[in-house]
Design a protein around this nucleic acid. Structure first.
Lengths: 177, 177
DNA sequence: GTTTGCATGTAAACGGTTACATGATTGG
DNA sequence: CCAATCATGTAACCGTTTACATGCAAAC
């Protein structure tokens, strides 16, 4: 899902500035499945404006750059829905952690333990973040996705906690053949 | 995790050609967490060779390009382990499907149903693929990762099957406000 | 007779990130 | 006093994908 489509999607829920769109990514539970940086959001919004999928109004501010508030246009709404109706790209899950676990036997035991601890902690944080904002979900889709995230994170944590010994009990090994 | 590191990792398990590395990605359960195309693998192997992390021997073949069989060198092994010892990049999960579900209320009901069916089928396939090769896992890490994948896929399927009604019971809606 | 598998590689295009530039205000 | 928040934007860089080029053999 490219940044343009993501911006359009967020704007179907209400007007926002580029800055706010970025915040919504990080705070509103979107960050588990999509991400984007300012370097891609601002150009995307400019292009969407040129194409007529969004409109802008500038709100002058003192001592700060003008806020540029974007609204999705009817054409934008149509284009957004159309992009969801055509075949979706496949999921991409890239997990350096899981990749590393594949080679646990080449790593020192304590390092594997530390990696597991760190990863479990990290997932725990994400789960806590999701639980912290149960209330805020408005549409049925948002609630569904939040519950989905919770379920997956919980299953992950549970697996890691109950199975970690299987790769930890290796004695510290050097990268030997 | 970049393609170079992934190639190095695969080569710790035995010699392989670029072509075979690609196959291993797809067949050996790696594809759930990492991916790469020929267009990135071949240049990566050339660069690794220049840097001394892998060595090549050419096996002449009639009527086909020579097989270039790559082996990891001691320096490559050291570099690979070192790359796993430094802080790992965070996971990236990008799921166009989940993103689309966030906007289920903007889509026609039957379409949401079709998307759920397709996704459930797709995850089911991945799970089946993983189950089909339980035996082949050699290291404890490989077994651990395969079990991890199974657990997560099963939890996902279970959630989708038991909660799909929550976004399906919407009546067919137009993209209206 | 067409598709799939084997086998390597290049070039252009793409999408995105990172770092930089600018700068006031508020909270710790 | 420093960090974070607000606010937009550009440019260089990066890794990767896609499409192309080549071509035989075996399976369907």
């Amino acid at each position: 899902m490219d940044v343009r489509t993501i911006c359009l999607g967020i704007l179907t829920r209400g007007d926002a500035t580029g800055y706010e769109i970025k915040k919504l990514f990080e705070e509103d539970g979107y960050e588990h499945f999509v991400e984007a940086s300012f370097g891609s959001i601002y150009p995307a919004l400019n292009r969407l404006t040129e194409e007529g999928y969004v409109s802008v109004r500038s709100e002058a501010q003192e001592k700060r750059p003008d806020r540029k508030v974007y609204s999705i246009t009817p054409a934008g709404r149509t284009a957004f829905v159309a992009s969801l109706l055509k075949p979706l790209p496949e999921d991409r899950h890239r997990s350096p952690f899981v990749f590393a676990m594949l080679f646990a036997d080449l790593l020192p035991g304590p390092r594997v333990t530390a990696m597991l601890d760190a990863y479990i902690h990290q997932i725990g944080e994400k789960l806590a973040h999701l639980n912290a904002r149960v209330d805020a979900s408005k549409s049925s889709g948002e609630r569904f996705v939040a519950d989905y995230g919770r379920t997956v994170y919980e299953a992950t944590l549970n697996f890691l906690r109950t199975h970690r010994a299987e790769i930890e009990k290796q004695q510290p090994a050097q990268a030997a053949e």
